[in-house]
Design a protein around this nucleic acid. Structure first.
Lengths: 117, 117
DNA sequence: GGTATAGTAAACCAAATGGTTTTGGATGCA
DNA sequence: TGCATCCAAAACCATTTGGTTTACTATACC
């Protein structure tokens, strides 16, 4: 496959790419909160804040539970795992590559030095 | 601070949110490639592909080296570390929380069972 | 019942995104 | 010199994003 097609990864990374949504995640890491509590500290209107929550729900990073007139939100770990494992896969891979390249360059430099000496 | 303001995290997560850009990263994990090589497997025009590369450069996930008429690209690990550590921070946090909640629920269930017996 | 509170929905807007086509500039090569 | 290749830049376009305001529904409370 030519593109790394994964709508879920698209959604998760996109959800994490906005400071307001990361702030919501940070808040929810302290426990369940309703939409008003989530919206209060954000410097935007209430409808704007709930749109961000919907983006997080679409990425399945947040689940919503309706209790009376309030909507309580909590975090979900699974999509974060998926995202992290994707990045880790490549990070490790090319860190090894670069370490190998660095040591190769070191070898070449010392060879150059011994040739000159 | 109310929002999780970090333009670099914004840029990294946004860069990772598109399948074409993840495909480019996957390609570059096999080693340095020029823009034509990167664009070839993508189902889009060359200018569109180079725009994606520029997005990756803006997030500092890719560095470019000009050699004659070709532009060679390679990956950079640092921003990925930053992104991963951000997600790990919260993932661990709320996994512990949920495990704690799960065991609490287990306790309550067994208490309920013993009360009924 | 009446009023505040929690939240949705819709219309609207500016700016960013993701793509195209076209044009043109360097570099490499026969 | 001439031609193909690698790439940038600009103009353009449709759609999405991120925000607003306004109007509305439903629950809680006195």
């Amino acid at each position: 496959m030519v593109l790394d097609a994964s709508p879920r990864l698209d959604a998760v990374f996109h959800a994490l790419s906005h400071p307001a949504r990361r702030a919501i995640i940070r808040q929810l890491s302290a426990g369940e909160q309703n939409l008003s509590e989530l919206a209060a500290p954000l410097k935007m209107t209430f409808p704007a804040a709930t749109k961000h929550v919907r983006v997080l729900e679409h990425a399945k990073l947040v689940r919503r539970r309706v209790a009376g007139r309030e909507h309580l939100c909590r975090l979900t770990a699974a999509p974060l795992k998926e995202a992290t494992s994707w990045t880790e896969q490549f990070r490790k891979h090319w860190e090894v590559r670069f370490e190998a390249l660095d040591s190769l360059l070191e070898e070449m430099k010392s060879e150059d030095r011994s040739r000159r000496s």
